[in-house]
Simulated assay, not measured.
Amino acid sequence: MTARTLRLGTRRSALATTQSEHVAERLRVLGHDVELVEIVTEGDTNRGPLAQIGGTGVFAAALRNALLAGEVDLAVHSLKDLPVAPQPGLVVAAVPPREDPRDVLVARDGLTLGEIPAGGVIGTGSPRRAAQLEALGLGVEVRAIRGNVGTRIGLVGDSCDGVVLARAGLARLGRLDEATEVLDPLQMLPAPGQGALAVECRTDDTDLVELLRGLDDADTRAAVTAERALLGELEAGCSAPVGALAEIVEEEDGSLLISLRGFVGSTDGALELRRSAVGPIEQPERLGAELAQVFLDDGAADAIAPPRQPGPAVDAGHPQPAGPDSTPEGEQ
């Protein structure tokens, strides 16, 4: 591809621009000038619940519209913000190597999750996290909070004993040392696609599609494809209490498999379903769909209905939907 100036669309938050700069730097190394173009999405400005302001794609829609209108050449999304259904005219040309997808706790006095006393308050805007915290039976209050990474952490020691965020977001912002515990997926499965980025461009921009393919990581793409296939088959959006984590494992004969674990639950902790499956790396969509069917056979549909928000909301002072895993700061 002939060197050209590429306009990269990004959400305006600190985390989104940091993620976009990571992709931009890789393209600059390849000899291309890259200009970041900030796009304001409805998810960045509307304070209402995600389900009321447009659902899963509320953070991606403005970026995608800018792509389709030719205002930008490519866009970087937090993959867990991206709807499972493809957008006509656009292609996710690259899924770069994934950050650690696990969640973390940031708590007062260096506490771990098990050390927060009964009656303590843990803040999260995610029904997925709320459902898994309630299922642990710790006797804590799970309270809905709003705000970006910095404002959520600022609640610790004030209105919350601790908050749960995505490790990837803290790592990308250089704030990982503020985490007091990395949560084991046995306790807290991440959101499908958590920690991964999606680099999207127009399908007909074939030179750019080919260029971006060089940023793609095959193992990451296979893993997140399985996770998102699970989500899609469940017909659940990012505001549903669904967790998933796929990992690539190597057999003794050298063949590669995908190990996929999933969680579906209710935000009051009354329903907790954890299931897993293993399949060939060449068939991630099939593996995700098959595991989703196991969940549906076991009664997951009731939990996937629009969730009750966990506890009274605490507004941390920034426009943001209450309830989804996706927030104006992307990976939280």
Rank of each mutant, 00 (worst) to 15 (best):
V34I: 10
V249N: 02
N65Q: 12
S159N: 04
R308Y: 03
A305N: 14
R28V: 13
L165W: 13
G288K: 01
V224S: 00
R143V: 15
L189G: 02
G237H: 06
Q194H: 14
E290V: 03
R274V: 06
G232M: 01
Q194D: 15
H77V: 05
G114W: 14
A130Q: 09
V23M: 05
L113F: 12
A69T: 03
T203R: 10
A303Q: 10
D184W: 09
G147M: 11
P241C: 07
S255T: 15
G31W: 09
S266L: 11
L82P: 11
V72S: 01
A62T: 14
D44F: 07
Q293R: 15
I39Y: 05
R129V: 15
R228H: 10
D177Q: 06
D33S: 14
S326M: 08
L211G: 09
E35C: 02
G311C: 09
T112K: 13
G9F: 05
A14R: 15
R221Q: 02
G48F: 03
D73Y: 02
P328S: 08
D33P: 01
Q187W: 14
A300K: 09
A196D: 12
Q332S: 05
D100C: 07
S259D: 15
T10H: 09
Q52V: 12
P86G: 01
R213N: 13
T17A: 07
D298C: 06
G70D: 10
A305E: 15
F263G: 03
G125Y: 10
D158M: 04
R175V: 00
L79Q: 13
A14F: 04
T18Q: 09
P324K: 09
P241G: 11
P280E: 01
V149C: 03
L271R: 10
T112N: 06
R102I: 07
V76Y: 10
A62L: 12
G154N: 05
G120W: 12
P49Y: 11
R175E: 04
G237I: 03
A3K: 13
A131M: 08
T124Q: 09
V242G: 02
